[in-house]
Amino acid sequence: MGGREGYARGDRVWNRRLGIVDALRPLAERISAPVDGIRVYYLEVYGGNKITAASKQYTGGTTLGHRLFDVAEIDAATLELPQARIASWRDGGGQYFHSEDELTEIAADQEIELAPRLATVAASKLPTGIDEMQAFLTHHLSRTLVALDPDAGGRPEGIVLRTKDRSVIAKARYQNYARTLQLRAKQR
């Protein structure tokens, strides 16, 4: 997926050409606020024809989709701190990001589709070599699971690998592994 653009009620500046704000506005207007503090929803908007170079893999037209991939909670008092303390809090990992189980519950409660979950794999079973990771990607995701119409190209961008507690997060991208393998082949 790709393309991100922030928006909050009352925002005055955004890139209207991409359509991201218009695609997310109905969701932003219907989701409920937490009882205490601030909840930040991290969504990825994909498709369209101008969001990223991969847009055509999700739609043959201009349709936009979105998927939730993370949620954080912030104590409202944090925003009253001096700017330097807020930056330090942020840089030091002060945000509370929900666990996989909590994220799934919030998505269901708010009726927001999650980015697809593919499998649970023990860390010791993840490939460590370039060729092996390319095979792993192809085995677990040979075509996108979020095509928006039948005319989508269908080639996936990659897989996000993360532990349930979010202590480790990485993205394995097809393009990176393919490029590395091509460079190796040229050097031989």
Rank of each mutant, 00 (worst) to 15 (best):
A152K: 03
V146H: 04
R184V: 03
G3R: 01
L118E: 09
A122I: 04
G154V: 01
D109K: 14
L161F: 03
L137M: 07
R67Q: 12
W89N: 04
M133S: 08
T78N: 05
I112F: 05
S142M: 09
A135W: 09
P150I: 03
L145G: 12
L103S: 00
M1L: 12
H140L: 02
E157N: 11
I31L: 09
Q175V: 11
P156M: 00
T62H: 06
E73L: 11
L141A: 05
R173K: 14
D165F: 10
G65D: 05
G129P: 04
R188H: 13
W14N: 03
N49V: 01
R85E: 15
R117D: 13
S55N: 08
Q134C: 08
Y46L: 08
T120I: 13
G129S: 14
A135H: 13
D151M: 09
P116E: 07
W89V: 04
T128V: 10
A87W: 04
G60L: 02
A122K: 15
D22F: 04
K125Q: 12
P156R: 00
H66G: 00
G93V: 07
F136H: 08
L68N: 03
T144C: 08
S124N: 02
R117W: 14
D91E: 14
E113W: 00
Q182L: 14
T104A: 06
A77H: 12
A84P: 00
H139G: 02
Y42T: 02
G47D: 10
G2M: 05
R143C: 06
R16H: 09
A8E: 09
R173A: 13
K125V: 01
R184Y: 04
H140C: 00
N49R: 05
I20A: 00
G60K: 06
A8D: 07
L43E: 06
G129N: 08
A54P: 05
T59M: 05
F136M: 09
A77I: 00
G65R: 01
L43R: 07
S88E: 15
G154A: 05
L43W: 02
E111H: 15
A76V: 15
R162T: 01
L18T: 13
A119L: 07
L114G: 05
D165L: 06
Y96H: 15
T144V: 12
A23C: 13
A28F: 09
R117Q: 15
G37Q: 02
V71Q: 07
S32Q: 09
A87D: 14
H139D: 09
T180C: 08
D101M: 09
E113D: 15
Q187I: 11
E73W: 08
N15D: 14
N176A: 11
V168R: 06
R30Q: 11
Q83D: 13
V40Y: 06
K164M: 03
G158V: 07
G6L: 06
Y177Q: 03
Y41K: 11
R188N: 14
I169E: 12
L81A: 11
E132P: 11
H66S: 09
